[in-house]
Amino acid sequence: MLAFLLIIALAASPEMVTIGPGPAVAKNGGPVDVDVGRFLLDVDLVSRTDFAAFVGDHPLWRRDRARALFVDERYLADWASARAPGEDVDPAAPVTLVSWFAARAYCSAQGKRLPTSAEWELAAAASTTKKDARADPSFVAAILDWYGRPPAPLRANHRTQANLWGVRDLHGVVWEWVEDFNFALVKDGRSGDGGALFCGAGASAADPADYAGFMRLAFRSSLEARFALPVLGFRCAKDVLP
């Protein structure tokens, strides 16, 4: 059984591509601008099948055994059983309803890690033709349109063409966990930072090209590490060995 799961895990092990180096693109209140070095990033989002294999190998991450410290009550709640997604959901679709801890444990089990927000933003700034398409109106409009629409049922990956780096589905499918999701200081409503994310928000993002990144910042700010959300998935990253 274990060997079988291992084979599945290997077979499903997604391809990674090299990203960067590149400039810091997440300037909307993100960490101080630090250029991003080269790193590896999964081409595809982690699928339900991938995650089922992980849960099989690490039963402590089954939804019936995972600690309340690390997951909330919605963790993998759309699965038919604690072991498998079941027939009612597309197994090849991205896994969602996973906490930051669970996503991190998954990546760690693959010898990987979650990407940082700076890494993710660098990868996600690319269109199919440009490394930085954030000033391209149609690119931005498509992202904002997805942000604006109520979520549709998740289907298999590969719904979008790979971008210039070779990464798929960075936009238009789900939100994604990043290692430093909790860098934005919005919990304290009285601090300057908290204020910046609320009523003063527009001031720092008058350029509509920044709105997509700004909305991701707002989204990440609302998260806590235990949260499992139906529209929040992840992919893994890895350091490039010197």
């Binding site: 993100g30 960490p31 101080v32 630090v34 410290l69 930051w100 801890f101 890690r113 290692e179 430093d180 909790n182 860098f183 934005a184 200081l185 919005v186 919990k187 304290d188 601090s191 930072d193 806590e224 590490a225």
Partner: peptide, 26 residues
């Protein structure tokens, strides 16, 4: 660093690298 972020996540502490080696945190 990884364990530090784990604990911050568990406690709900938000932080990021600031200018000049400072760390902005709640």
């Amino acid at each position: 660093p990884e364990a530090t972020r784990t604990l911050a996540a568990l406690l709900g502490v938000r932080y990021r690298a600031g200018a000049g080696g400072a760390i902005d945190h709640s």
